[in-house]
Design a protein around this nucleic acid. Structure first.
Length: 429
DNA sequence: TCTGGGGTCCTAGGACCC
DNA sequence: TCTGGGGTCCTAGGACCC
């Protein structure tokens, strides 16, 4: 620790999977290796993962799939629906390998993790990164890039170059002052972690174009216009680690389940099936983190891209006592839907949000005593969760969620569930 | 025909209290 | 009847992340 109270002795690595969803698809389908490949979001909407060949075709992230399909096919490329069962499983395998390289791993997202290297005996950080890269690739088939520096934000910057500059062979350590300055100068201010579109625009108007200029900007100016978040970003760029490595996954403070439908939906009964399904999913996530929710919200919306009358609304209620019991939550959600629903609109999306989430153990005892059934209910939910985990999602489900689910999202270009379904495991011939 | 889903953190402003 | 200032709590909305 120095006089600012911030540690500047940290060494942090950011490991990021390259083009993650595309890479997962390629592991199991070698025909995809050299052709342009893009993966679509839920409902086959926008492009959310791009191979390098797709990037070379100048197709941007988030582009609507249907507008690019013909162009991609013309170049011998492929568009795929997203297959989250596969990506989740591959992610777990990658993270598993990472845990052998540091005792202190923070899984930041499905395809990224921070590793704390402070105190580890490492001679050559870049070589260490390349070793990690080789191991992950050999054991999972997924290519990764490694950035190493004194703070998470700087590790992100290092990763930015490790991924793009071939000479670094996928691993870059930024630990000395001249190298840091040179690297920061070559990063657009909008590519700095924590700087989004609004701040990028604002900073550029004020002649701050790259990460180096941001690092050296006037503190008072940043504090005034970018609040404490901007302040932290600047300290991180100066090499002070403000955002520590967080090993234990935080339990969620809110849980949202929401999806667009595969087609327009007009009937309340179909909306009820969707809402009921989303409550079921949310409650599962809630129980998985051993929590209960004190607040439930249902929302509905029409298609904002389509001409015609629009309706966007939400209603919420307190859950008292806080609960994770699916049947009660569905009953309450369907009441909200009944108040929310207006006839005559073509709905495109519905969703459920749980908030005021607290740990089971933090619910005041008086609530539990007053609800002596709770023990039986929670055992019922545990049994349902166990069955669904062992035999697949929705083995046991609530009737109101529907069976045919005709409103469900489209996944026309779905690859097989190579790693998570026995029937779809690849065969060696 | 066709445009994602799921999170966190921070601030401003209103309601209420003394 | 009219009045000030300060504190806390809550909510909505904006900005960011992947």
């Amino acid at each position: 620790m120095d006089s600012t109270g911030l540690s500047n002795k940290e060494i942090i690595a950011l490991v990021d999977c390259n083009n993650f969803y595309v890479s997962c698809e390629r592991v199991f389908n070698p025909k995809l290796a050299k052709v342009p490949v893009a993966v679509l979001s839920n409902n086959d909407g926008c492009i959310v993962s791009r191979s390098n060949e797709i990037k070379a075709l100048k197709i941007p992230m988030g582009a609507p799939g249907f507008k690019q399909e013909a162009f991609i096919h013309k170049h011998g490329g492929v568009l795929l629906s997203s297959n989250y069962a596969l990506y989740g499983d591959m992610s777990a395998r990658v993270m598993n390998v990472l845990s052998m390289f540091s005792p202190d791993v923070e899984i930041y997202s499905i395809d990224e993790a921070f590793l704390n290297l402070s105190g580890l005996m490492i001679q050559d950080y870049e070589e260490w990164g390349r070793q990690l890269k080789r191991t992950v690739f050999r054991w999972t088939g997924i290519p990764v890039s490694v950035g190493i520096s004194r703070s998470k934000t700087l590790a992100k910057c290092a990763n930015h170059h490790a991924k793009r500059v071939l000479g670094f062979k996928g691993s870059l350590a930024l630990l000395d002052e001249t190298r840091i300055a040179k690297a920061l100068q070559r990063i657009d201010v909008g590519d700095v972690w924590g700087i989004g579109r609004q701040y990028q625009k604002f900073l550029k108007q004020n002649k701050i174009e790259n990460a180096l200029q941001l690092r050296d900007a006037d503190d008072k100016f940043i504090d005034h216009y970018m609040t404490v978040v901007g302040h932290k970003t600047i300290l991180e760029l100066r090499g002070y680690s403000c955002v520590g490595i967080d090993e234990a996954p935080q339990s969620k403070k809110s849980i949202v389940t929401s999806k667009s439908f595969g087609r327009q939906v007009t009937d309340q009964s179909e909306l009820a099936e969707a809402v009921s399904t989303y409550v079921t999913r949310s409650a599962e996530k809630l129980r998985a983190q051993k929590s209960v929710a004190g607040h439930l919200m249902v929302f509905l919306s029409t298609n904002r891209f389509k001409e015609g009358p629009q309706y966007n609304n939400s209603l919420s209620t307190t859950l008292f006592p806080p609960t994770a019991y699916t049947p009660d939550m569905i009953r309450i959600a369907l009441q909200l839907l009944d108040d929310l629903y207006l006839e005559g609109f073509e709905y495109k999306k519905a969703g459920v949000m749980l908030a005021d989430i607290m740990s089971e153990g933090d619910v005041p005892l008086s609530f539990i005593e007053a609800n002596y059934l709770d023990d039986r209910r929670s055992r019922l939910m545990q049994a349902v969760d166990r069955l669904n985990k062992a035999h697949g999602r929705d083995t046991v489900t609530v009737a109101s969620s529907g069976v045919k689910k005709e409103w469900e999202m489209r996944r026309a270009k779905l690859s097989p569930r190579f790693t998570t379904s026995w029937n779809e495991i690849p065969k060696v011939k």
